[in-house]
């Protein structure tokens, strides 16, 4: 069976309570669902013997700036068995800026989530080591948010004396 019909079918069977928003743009399948189910669905996709999404290519977030749900988490996962790339998305509101961590599912997610935390300030529950990835620990802002200016905030990062 074609994977593009198989995956939605399997997911709907397994998670009848979850609403899936499915899009297929430029041959790339995307699922959008509630952030509560992220870990369950990821674990299912990884462990199911017919799918085997064993590789977590990329985790990031999108800042929509003015929308109600300000952030969207994006998970790019890949099944080496089928050569198939799948994208999962979940909306995160700024008031409740937390998602469950998937680093228990894929260990590769550990740093990718840390990077997302560093750049967008989205916190990950149950993350083993949630620190900033790139910026110094004392830095207070989240650079990839749309309200952060490109040139930064003067004086926020110290320089050694001449």
């Amino acid at each position: 069976m074609d994977l593009k019909t198989l995956i939605p079918q399997k997911l709907k069977e397994k998670f009848p309570a979850v609403e899936f928003e499915i899009t297929d743009y430029k041959d790339e399948l995307t699922f959008k669902f509630d952030k509560k189910f992220v870990v369950e669905i990821c674990a299912f996709l990884k462990s199911d013997p017919e799918l085997e999404f064993k590789s977590c290519t990329d985790i990031t977030a999108i800042d929509w700036a003015t929308r109600k749900n300000r952030f969207t988490m994006v998970y790019n996962i890949f099944s080496m068995k089928h050569n198939f790339r799948l994208r999962l998305k979940a909306d995160v509101d700024e008031a409740d800026c937390k998602v469950d961590s998937v680093s228990s599912v894929w260990r590769a997610a550990n740093w990718q989530e840390r990077e997302t935390y560093d750049m967008y300030g989205i916190k990950f529950n149950n993350h083993p080591d949630l620190r900033r990835m790139y910026m110094p620990e004392e830095f207070e802002y989240y650079p990839l948010r749309k309200d952060f200016p490109l040139m930064g905030i003067p004086g926020s990062l110290p320089l050694p004396k001449k």
């Binding site: 910026m135 650079p143 490109l150 040139m151 930064g152 905030i153 050694p160 001449k162």
Partner: peptide
């Protein structure tokens, strides 16, 4: 690199 994390010239802290 006109960006938030790059020092705009090292002569700010080095001769």
């Amino acid at each position: 690199y006109r960006s938030y994390s790059v020092v705009q010239g090292i002569d700010q802290f080095l001769p």
